[in-house]
Design a protein around this nucleic acid. Sequence first.
DNA 1: GCCCGCATAGACAGCGCTGTCAATCAAACG
DNA 2: CGTTTGATTGACAGCGCTGTCTATGCGGGC
Lengths: 338, 338
Amino acid sequence: MSRITIHDVSKAAGVSIKTVSRVLNSEPNVRSETRARVLKLVEELNYHPSLSARSLAGRSSNLIGLIYQNPSANYVVDLQKGALERCHTRGYRLLVHPCEGTDVSSVRDLAGLVLESHLDGVILAPPLSDSTEVLAELQKHRIRFVRIAPTVDLDAYSCVFMNDVAAAREMTEYLIALGHERIGFINGPPGHPVTEQRYLGYTLALRSHGLDVDPQLVDRGEFTFDSGLAAARRLLSRATRPTAVFASNDDMAAGTIMAAHEMGLSIPQRLSVAGFDDSYVAQVIWPRLTTVHQPTYEMAHQAADMLFRSLGDEAPPKSVEIPYRMVCRESTGPRPTN
Amino acid sequence: MSRITIHDVSKAAGVSIKTVSRVLNSEPNVRSETRARVLKLVEELNYHPSLSARSLAGRSSNLIGLIYQNPSANYVVDLQKGALERCHTRGYRLLVHPCEGTDVSSVRDLAGLVLESHLDGVILAPPLSDSTEVLAELQKHRIRFVRIAPTVDLDAYSCVFMNDVAAAREMTEYLIALGHERIGFINGPPGHPVTEQRYLGYTLALRSHGLDVDPQLVDRGEFTFDSGLAAARRLLSRATRPTAVFASNDDMAAGTIMAAHEMGLSIPQRLSVAGFDDSYVAQVIWPRLTTVHQPTYEMAHQAADMLFRSLGDEAPPKSVEIPYRMVCRESTGPRPTN
DNA sequence: GCCCGCATAGACAGCGCTGTCAATCAAACG
DNA sequence: CGTTTGATTGACAGCGCTGTCTATGCGGGC
């Protein structure tokens, strides 16, 4: 059973291969009755055009890449789901490419992917969306891309983002409204796009409510559970222990909850904990985590959509903001009255 | 800056394109000095052969597919990591394909992928590795595949697996050794390959220690957190409440821990909980979960390896067993003495 | 009746490689 | 010295499509 090609379809339909090609690509100037006949044969013969041949002969490969460098499985999977869903409806395939970093060999790797696979475009997830090396490499090869949650050169290229500053601020204000005044913060790693933004939101909220930013209440992790656990242990052992901790992502918030359990601090009675992302872990730990829902799926979906639009003739909107959503669960409560 | 092709390299090296092709594909009969010259030019010109052209002209596309249908993000990511790592060293690209199910349209989708993309082979993750529809479709198109954790036709095709029965049995025996006699079990969905196996391990352990399998102590979920939570609520509300619950995956075990928290049952003092998989969630919930480490990464890695070997001339081993590992943490303890 | 314009369709080159087969050359053999 | 052999290399077709150019048919305006 050898492969069915466009020739088989054209012979069966009694037309030239070019006409079959026109039908497949929804090009104009085909009589509707011819079109119907071809489509019928395509169906009957179970014909699937070869992507290799298409990308070799034409301008498009119907392949896009999703480039990420992220330790959080749930984030990556949400990203993939969003992009895949959109790819599916548009007839594209998705090549996933976890990028080690922004060192020379990783960037070369990325270039290799782009060159070998004829990618039509790529979606860049943070923190790669801010990497000048990666951006330069993509531009060198004239590859279209859409960035997710970038923080630099916002206007230069298409991107999808959410307002991390406002979200972090709103969460902090929520904690303040609960009566908390000593609110700890676990920051992300320096250099990561969202790190500064979430911290900024935290400080803005404090200041606008007349509270000082106490360096003793701020620690730092790497957006991982273990680093959050370590940071929380330090934070909660300080003389002036916070009554609430806002961790700048859910994994670190989960670490904070673990630290509190270890120290016998009941949540939320003696310590409130808030996270950021609304990842899977937020819903399965006890108590369930108050957090900010980051619309990862929607962002990837939108990013893919913008990419496809820019691959067509439409000029896509330069940037799209996706709304976040506060999710209040049981890990936060009023300030303990001691 | 247009694309560098094999012609550019051949001109620069003063050889024919065929010789460049030979060098790139490590074919014999090229003088080592010619080979060196070509390789030097490839490097200098930053030449990357077009995968489309290769797959169109040759027998191989250097593309393999990873087909899964799994709700658990961590499982999927581990699978991808394992497969990607191996692909990388072998110069292959990975197309990920989440398959909705085994209905007609999903199978057509899969066939479309295979036909359009010229996949050299695919890796099938459970529960698809047991789907006769999927297997038939792949065979129809003569696609090589390696199955992960199949339970049927083990000898018919290459596969990678772990001993779920032994693992479930060992975990149950561990609970028995802790003194538990009323050990609840949360089963997976019927039809999923591992469901029967883990349940079998559970019953074997009970029987071999003179304990009855009490249907009142067995409930069922869908391998998701919510379904595990629901099952645990039912299980823990029964008149003869178990002193330990063995959930057949970690997500459902996390649900069980949540249910225990809801009911004020302290773990492991009044209830022991064990899971299966050692997924991310097992390490971040409180108390941390006693579970069986499923070597997902290694299985995917091995599966990719076997696939590549079977694409070459080597006859790969029919099936490979990867060892599991018990991971004892704080969610299990001695039977409460009441 | 003639020409133009548009809708429809086909012929054909060629995308960048690999597979096949033929050509060349040096060493080895009788 | 002619001939065979094996190593090395190249010429060329063709994989399955798309892009470009050309051909044909048909209706309308003069």
